[in-house]
Amino acid sequence: MDKALYISSSPHIHSGVTTNKIMRLVIYALLPAIAVAVVFFGLPALKVLLICTLGCVACEALCCKLMKQPLSINDGSAVLTGILLALNLPPSSPWWLALLGAAIAIVIGKMIFGGLGYNPFNPALVARVVLLISFPVQMTSWTAPAPLSMGFDAVSSATPLGEMKSAVMLTGQLPEMATSGFDRYFYGLMAGSLGEVSALVLLLGGLFLIFKRVISWHIPVSFIGSVVVMAGIFWLIDPTRYPSPLFHLLTGGLMLGVFFMATDMVTSPITAKGMLIFGCGCGLLTVLIRLFGGYPEGVSFAILLMNATTPLIDRYTKAEIYGGHNHETGGVQ
């Protein structure tokens, strides 16, 4: 016994699942979506991904230095925010837009609140929405996916949700693309942000996260479920004006939002019941915004609005404790 004994209070073992490992698993789950984005949109997509990721890491490092805090970039959350931001941007985004987005996500979305764990809103979505409102032209310049092209001859194209919205506004009727041929949306042959193209790979990534128990099923299931119910009600009312639930599920940022944005742990409830309420709220708002809002896509707004309700949801969904009556308490949330 040459070395001193280590003393600590129990427990003396740990599951081994750390924050860093969770971030890594989420990044792995996004790799197929990243690959599809690069294959479909070519070098411009890769450029956006790199600028966003490096931009986020650099901004976080800078903030840590300015805030005189220990460097936190090793926890993997800045890289993840960068990837998620890139997946929320059009492939044709200019470099400055991507970089500005990274700065907004990290500085305004996260670090001014105190860094990881303290931000009330999903940082990548904060950046996306700020950019969408400030630079509507650049944020809605879509290019058609062209598998394996090098991106020099990008053809501009509308997103399915955008096309649907303008057709309905002009004619009061759903265009044909919103009533049939959904398989191409499932595989990802549509215009959109980097991470909006293939519902299939996002679904796979999401299932991987649930299987690995990184995220629980509550938010994805309640989110998708409420989209299906809400969209289904309107579709049944008037199928010529409102698209089917399947169209809603396969287009836009829904799958990305369901599995990767709404499930962001920091900004979603910690109780199982709270997660169900949160997911339902996201789905409800998404469909309402898509059908009746000014923007064709509502996932980001829906999630951000629900982020704002998270502390309240947590407070009112506290489980009854073992053997007791839940005394109502003020929340330290």
Binding site: H14, T18, T19, I22, D75, S77, G114, G115, L116, G117, Y118, S216, M265, V266, T267, S268, P269, I270, T271, A272, M275, K318, A319, E320, I321, Y322, G331, V332, Q333
Partner: peptide, 24 residues
């Protein structure tokens, strides 16, 4: 390991056999 910030993952809430919110 040096403790990091709570990321509000809810794991402690899920595993607590008394249904407390340990992180809170």
């Amino acid at each position: 390991k040096k403790p990091g910030p709570c990321i509000r993952c809810g794991q402690c809430v899920k595993v607590c056999p008394i249904h407390l919110q340990p992180t809170v």
